[in-house]
Each structure stands twice: as C-alpha cells, then as structure tokens.
Amino acid sequence: MTATDPRIRRATTDDAERLTALIHASNGYQGEYAPMIDGYRLSPEYLALHPTYLAVDEADGLQGFYSLLVDAATLAKHGFTLPELNLLFVDDRLQGKGIGRLLIEHMLDLAKREGLTEIRVVSNPPAERFYLSVGAEKTGTVPPTPPRITWERPELLFRT
C-alpha cells in the first residue's frame, strides 16, 4: 500500500466498519495499550454526530482518519470544555508518509472555518511526539482511569 495523493472526504455512516477495523489493526494499541480499544466500535450514529474525515486514495482505499468532538452536549457529558480531537489513526503501513500531517492540517483548517480557536488532544503516550511535531503544545497529563486505562496520557492543545 502506498500513499498516492490522498484526498480528504467526510465519513459517511457506511464507513463505520472499516474505520473500526483500522483502529483495531493499529500497532499503537498493542501490548499494554490494548485494553483501551478492546471492544471499541465506531457506530454509524457516532459518524452522523461527530465530524469525521478520511484520507483516501483514488479508489477510496482508507489511509487514515480523524474525528472531532464538537457537539456541546457530548462535550458536557464528558466534562470537556474545549472541542477535542477524539480519534486520529493512520494505516500502519503508511505512517511517516505525511498522511497524519495532512489530516491535522485539514482539522485545523476546518476548525478555523467553524470559528474554533483551540482543540484539545488526550494522546496515547507513543503518539505524543507526532502531535508535538505538527504544532500541538503539551499542557499537562491526564491521570489513569482504571480499569481500562492504567497509565497517564499526555494532554495537548492545538491553537488555530
């Protein structure tokens, strides 16, 4: 698989299964981080509610995606005060080819158009370096939330 001129498109409810499959195939959630996604599924309802965008090749082959939490009710339910980058995944075979950077650029452009000035990220620890490299600043850490998450997670912020 190669990263051939990806284009970005909005996810549809029909994309739920293949996005879930990409999440579960991720090397970033193996070993000690596996419990975080154990049983996790993206539903068509999730995709209808939350802005989710895919990087795809010319044949609509999935290269990566991101999802934002911006709905006020969802944010309040989770105790969030800022819009949040909820998910960002790039096919393991395509990492390092600029797809993650392209997705972040798209997210920041979208945020600006929507009048969002900040986007919070609570990162898987191995992904922290990537977020810093694409312009996020570290603002702290989020404590473990057992039983699934037994480690601290970096908290970062993108400013648009």
Rank of each mutant, 00 (worst) to 15 (best):
L88I: 09
P125K: 05
R148H: 03
P125L: 01
L156I: 10
A76W: 06
Y46V: 14
Y33W: 09
R129K: 01
Q30D: 09
T141Q: 10
T160D: 06
P125Q: 04
Y131K: 04
Y40W: 12
L157P: 04
F65T: 00
S133P: 06
A34N: 03
M107N: 05
A3W: 15
E105F: 08
K112A: 15
L47H: 02
M1K: 11
H50E: 07
E155K: 11
H24Y: 06
L116M: 10
S43C: 02
H106E: 06
T13D: 12
T74Q: 09
Q63K: 14
T4C: 15
P154H: 00
I104R: 10
P83I: 02
M107A: 07
D15S: 04
G64W: 05
A25K: 11
L47P: 01
A127K: 01
I119P: 00
A127D: 01
V121E: 00
L102Y: 13
R93C: 10
L68H: 03
A48D: 02
K112E: 13
R18V: 01
L132G: 07
D57W: 15
F80D: 07
L82M: 06
R93I: 07
M1S: 10
L103F: 04
L102K: 12
R10K: 09
V122W: 09
D60Y: 08
M1R: 11
S123H: 00
L42M: 12
N27L: 13
A127S: 10
L108S: 11
E152G: 06
P146M: 07
G39L: 13
